[in-house]
């Protein structure tokens, strides 16, 4: 029991170290640059404690739950040998985790505002809502597709750099064609799609697959799934902006 507490205490110290840079930055700017009173000091102290505790638990759970399940599923799929099922699973994982992502919902709502002001759609609540929903589905679909392409790459052993370069070329071409109001949002949508739970799962899946397939290297073949998932939304959101 005592040992468990000691271990918990040690990991909490680790989390405090992760958080220390933010505390220093905010402290410095408050004390030397802004010199304004800080509202709700007690909230900040308890909030910081929550962050430290939460990060500690998250990292515990990561190594106990998320990593092992991702890897055991990758192993099971590799042993089953059904390419179709693993691709269906990849699509569901990408689509399912993205469509409900709160950051994406926020970005889609803001994008509908931009579209209304740029007179791409009518400025009514109804048309804005349908625009935002369409955008969300588009991004979720593109992330699902990205994981499918990424997993296929691991299975076939294709090298990643030419695929990513191809993606870059597509982004550049789409940038030239898409309405300029959508470009900033499209570029941002690549970054917001990958959430805190998706990233460890998808990483474990990729590394697990690359380790269980003969001739694949977990380092050069296992990573790269997230890269696809942050590239395809840019292309698809610009396409969405062109079509609507």
């Amino acid at each position: 029991m005592q040992q468990a507490f000691l271990a918990l205490f040690k990991s909490m110290l680790g989390s405090l170290r992760d958080l220390l840079p933010i505390i220093l930055v905010i402290g410095f700017f408050q004390a030397f640059v802004l010199q304004q009173p800080i509202p709700g000091f007690m909230d900040i102290i308890t909030g910081t404690l929550f962050i430290i505790l939460g990060l500690t638990f998250f990292i515990y759970g990561l190594e106990m739950g998320l990593f092992p399940i991702g890897e055991s599923m990758a192993n099971a799929f590799a042993r089953k040998g059904s390419v179709v099922w693993i691709l269906i699973f990849s699509f569901c994982l990408g689509f399912g985790t993205t469509v409900a992502e709160p950051a994406l919902i926020a970005v889609a709502d803001e994008a509908s505002e931009v579209a209304a002001i740029g007179e791409m759609i009518e400025n009514t609540a109804e048309s804005k809502q349908s625009y935002a929903d369409g955008l969300r589905l588009t991004v979720a679909f593109s992330v699902g597709l990205a994981i499918v392409i990424g997993v296929l790459r691991i299975l076939k052993g294709w090298s990643i750099q030419y695929m990513i370069m191809g993606g870059y070329i597509l982004v550049v071409i789409m940038t030239a064609l898409a309405p300029k109001e959508i470009i900033g949002i499209a570029y941002d949508s690549g970054g917001v799609t990958t959430s805190t739970i998706t990233v460890p799962l998808v990483t474990a899946l990729g590394v697990g697959l690359a380790s269980s397939i003969k001739g694949r290297n977990p380092m050069t073949d296992g990573f790269g799934l997230i890269a696809f998932a942050s590239l395809t939304p840019m292309i698809f959101v610009m396409a969405y902006g062109m079509v609507i």
Binding site: D43, I44, G47, L53, G61, M64
Partner: peptide
């Protein structure tokens, strides 16, 4: 063990987000 891990992730993430909303984001 995996389910316990998931519960840890869930509780950890919730506390983390709560702390962020209470302390870091407003500031």
């Amino acid at each position: 063990r995996v389910i316990t891990g998931f519960v840890y992730v869930l509780v950890g993430l919730s506390l983390f987000l709560l702390g962020l909303e209470q302390a870091l984001f407003p500031l």
